[in-house]
Each structure stands twice: as C-alpha cells, then as structure tokens.
Amino acid sequence: MRWQRRHVLSTEDWSREEIELVLEQATAMLEVLARPIRRTPALRGRTVVLFFAEASTRTRMSFELAAKSLSADTSIITASGSSVEKGETLYDTVRTLQALGAEIIVMRHAASGAPYFVAERVSASVINAGDGWHAHPTQGLLDALTLRGALGDLAGKRVAIVGDILHSRVARSDIHTLVPLGARIALAGPPTLIPSAWREGSAPDGVTYERDVERALDGADAVIALRLQKERQEAGLLASLREYRTAWGITEERAARLRPGVPVLHPGPMNEGIEIDAAVAHGPRSLVERQVTNGVAVRMALLYLLATAGAGAAERLDELAPAAPPTEVPA
C-alpha cells in the first residue's frame, strides 16, 4: 500500500494496513540504527521542528535522534524560554514555526486536540507527540513494534495494561494500535481511574476491564505498566502510593507468577517501587530499553513517510481536508 497521510495525530482511525506499513518501515530503520554510522541522507535539507509545550525528555530526544539519523535539520522549541511564556498564542507560535520553514512539526501539548488545531492551520505536516489525555500515537506504534518483536503475530494475544487508564494517552494509543493487529486488551486499575463507561461494560472492541490486577495478569501474553501521574493523588483519586503499589503495582511477586517469557513494558519515566518494582523494571522480563530503541525507529519511519509523501503535498493541500478534531476527550 502507499502512504497517504499528511499528519499523524492519532492512530484511532488508521487501518491495519497503515499500522503494518509503519511497523515494516520501522523494522528497516532499526537496521540503520545498528550500523557503524547511524545516519542516512534521506531527509537532507528538510526541516523538522520539535515543539514541546509540555515537559518531555525521552520523547523529545527520541524524535531528535530519529530526525538526525535521517539527516534532517532540527530545531527545538520548548514552552519555557520561548515566547509562549510571554503569552503568545498557540496559533501565532505555530505560524512562526511555519514561517521559519518547518516542513514537519512534532508537537507535544497539554491540551487534548491541540495538534488538530495546528494541523488545520499550517501547510507543514504535524506529528502528535502527546496531547493531554487524548493520544500518543508514536508510543502506541513503538509498543506494537516491541510486542511484535517479542511475541510475533499479535492475533489473539492478551495484553494487560495496568494503571491510570483514565488520564493515559498511552493506554488509548496502545488500544488503537494493538487491537487492529488482533490483540485483546485486559485493563486493570483503580476504578476511579478507569473511564466509567468502560467499567460498566461498554469498553471499546477488543478491550475488557478486570476488577483486580491478578485477573488481568492471569493468562497475559504481555504486560504494560503505566506511569502513575502523582498529581492525581492530590485530586483525591487515590488513597496512597503505598496502597496503589499493593493493589495495582507490577511487583516482583506478581511478575513471578506470570508465565515464563511474558514481557513487561513501561512507557517511562518509571516510578520504581510504585507502579513497577525496580527488580521487574530492570529484570529479564523488561523490554523498557527495547522500547527506547524501537521508539527511535518508529519515529524515523514516520518522519520518512511524511517528508517523502509530503514532497508533492503542497499542490494537494486544498484537496486534503485535515482530520476532524476530537469533539471531546474520550471518557
């Protein structure tokens, strides 16, 4: 199949073929990352702007490394230390980025839907590097690549996702990427941190909610632990961190009960001793480092596909209506 998209905002409306194409391209990029010289000239002279209006270290570095491995020029704009602090609107910031020649804008923003707002208003391609609770499509794709590498075909595989599902763009993007590949998702987490509709039996296709973590882990082929966003505790959605670990943590004891070879993933950064024990995070089941490498490869694949398909995009701008923004945050 041919790549048609101009933006990567969410994988929610992607076909299985599109996901497969990106994973296939990412696999080729992994080989580039294993070379003595980890750089190819594919995007020489192209400009990628990394616009991070919300804190991030690993995702930003991963995109930067991905862009550099394709020889693209990169500029980094963070909210602190830029005109955003002076009250510049998102729209004005992005117009400026475009005026500076950005062909691809990689953006992270605390507001769900912000990348859609930008994508509608610029001729550059936009990659969502995480918007609020909504989506983190490159995380979903890199988790799919990592699970494929560990488990092979994901058809019928059971993936447990444990933690704060409600506020997790990672959980949403994992669901939107893994389910089309045939995986079944078992969610577990504090009831206050699960979307209420999902708790009450109307979870998305391929997704079930388990009331306790043992049931989610039972028979799992892989486990994804989510980062506990500690600020949630202040909002009264959690009793205590100690209680959280006891009830929902991927502890050493729980990991020991998983079938041999069942891998454990975590999007990072990890709160060791809360949602995941250090012994699990750095133990033989952990694919956390693999996720980091795969993240660079997936981002290279997307940059390549967008920059190359985008070459003729200028003339097609009028024909391609941007995807509709999400009308509300899924809850």
């Binding site: 041919r2 790549w3 048609q4 194409l21 296939e24 391209q25 080729a28 990029m29 594919a42 995007l43 002279g45 192209r46 694949a301 390549y304 596909l305 920059a307 190359t308 398909a309 070459a311 003729g312």
Partner: peptide, 10 residues
C-alpha cells in the same frame, strides 16, 4: 526523494 509523489517502501 523530494520529487516522488509517495514514499517508496524502505
């Protein structure tokens, strides 16, 4: 690569 209409598969 800057002239093709659609990204060739790597």
């Amino acid at each position: 690569l800057t002239r093709v209409a659609s990204a060739p598969i790597v």
